[in-house]
Amino acid sequence: MTYIERDGGTTRDELVQRVALMEEMIAEGRQSTARYGWMFVLWGLTYFAAIAWTVYLPYTEWAWPACIAACSVVFGIVRSRQSCVEGQIDNLRRHSLDAVWQVIGGGIILYLIAVIASGHGKEPEYLAAVLFFNGLANGVSARILRWWPQGVAAAIWWGCGTTMLLFTTRTEILTLFLMATFFGMIVFGLYAMMLENHMSSMVPGEQQ
């Protein structure tokens, strides 16, 4: 300990306090990601709906804008009600996770708007980029929360993105996109919801 004290001016007590605070924040961050598992399921179903529209329904150019707009409205309403009922968990890690998802979500929307508005929507490879963006969000979140299941979700997104650059027919691209959405978003969201249920059924002292 003397080494640490001499080196950075940090005492043992301060270090213990920092570690305890970090562990507490990680636990809170994981819990809140589990609490918001429904968001992954909602966005996964939105992707499925948009793709089904582009394949089976007319006015395909409206499929993505309409589905994303509808999902955003539902998302906003449910989230605001959830915040009212449960209150906000405020810690630095929670803010960090919000920042990650807000930034990457915003970036994806900006990218998609630019692709569609400039008429590049027919280049299917842009979808591979979207899968990589989703993988990046999950990867950063997994790294912050030290949570391997979310790391697996990131690997699924990146794996499907990589494969999409190798298999480039319309059917292959759609299949890969749906696979990534199903496993990386819907299954992960359901797992997070299950975890949340499990945690809320436990006595507070048992939660880790």
Partner: peptide, 28 residues
């Protein structure tokens, strides 16, 4: 490896990804 590096969507995605990392770091 798959010779897609000439597409606009690829180049734009690189810039978007870098922008995302900078934006997240800026918020942290």
């Amino acid at each position: 490896l798959t010779h897609f590096s000439w597409q606009y969507s690829y180049v734009a995605a690189l810039l978007m990804m870098l922008g995302m990392a900078h934006a997240i770091s800026a918020m942290f």
